[in-house]
């Protein structure tokens, strides 16, 4: 069964159709990239998958459950329990240390556990930077903290929005390597990007244009 299935969803803002009858399926454990130029509907789709918005029409099945009609509160619960988010601008709480930022995610999810949070930081190679404030970390380090934060609650789906958009190549590679590790562990990944290199790292790329799925590309080099 697919982990995520969008069935004929549309999102309409007045005259504008941000998404127009889109259907996609993402299997459990799959790594999918979503590409498209500005205004193609990427952000809208990301919002809907991230349970931060609802489609005007159509169904969104997450783990077989239709979440397209759920209340805001229920969507928050689902997002917290099933989805790990990674953002282009990292978004850390500026006055909390790296490890505290990871613990914030635990705090809302279940119980803060400093040891576990430190382990997660260790996984992204930042254990010794745990007590640093975001302002004392480089961009790449911040994004790695955000990856640690996204995976701390073992989400079924990691949703990344231009995760390497603000990083240099070296850090981009570190983040992509982390994604590979997660993928190998069976985590489902959806990465929204306009960077072909990042897209090529995924198993499959869905290209959006004018609110529609223009094409899907299977990455034949995946895993090579």
């Amino acid at each position: 069964m697919a982990l995520l299935e969008l069935k004929n969803i549309s999102k309409i803002y007045g005259e504008l159709k941000a998404l127009d009858n889109v259907s996609i399926k993402v299997e459990k454990g799959e790594w999918v990239a979503i590409m498209g130029p500005s205004g193609s509907g990427k952000s809208t789709m990301m919002n809907i998958i991230g349970c931060m918005d609802k489609p005007s029409m159509g169904e969104v099945l997450l783990d077989g459950v239709d979440i397209s009609k759920e209340s805001q509160k229920k969507l928050t619960d689902i997002r917290r329990d099933k989805i790990g988010l990674i953002f282009q601008q990292f978004h850390m709480v500026t006055y909390l240390t790296a490890v505290e930022n990871v613990m914030v995610s635990q705090y809302y999810h279940s119980m803060p556990d400093e040891e576990e949070a430190l382990e997660a930081l260790g996984r992204v190679g930042l254990r010794e930077r745990a007590k640093h404030l975001p302002s004392q970390l480089s961009g790449g380090e911040q994004q790695r903290v955000c990856v640690a934060r996204a995976l701390i609650n073992h989400p079924e789906l990691i949703l990344a929005d231009e995760p390497t958009g603000n990083l240099d190549e070296a850090n981009e590679n570190i983040v992509l390597d982390l994604f590979r590790q997660l993928h190998n562990e069976g985590t489902t990944l959806i990465v929204v990007t306009h960077d072909p290199e990042v897209a090529e790292a995924a198993q499959r790329t869905i290209v959006l244009e004018h609110g529609r799925v223009a094409r899907e590309v299977i990455n034949e080099n995946f895993g090579k």
Binding site: T76, D77, L85, V93, T94, V104, S105, Y108
Partner: peptide
Amino acid sequence: RREIGLRKALGASDGS
């Protein structure tokens, strides 16, 4: 605003 948005994105309820 961004921090609050982030907290909500991370799953903070209105009550939190």
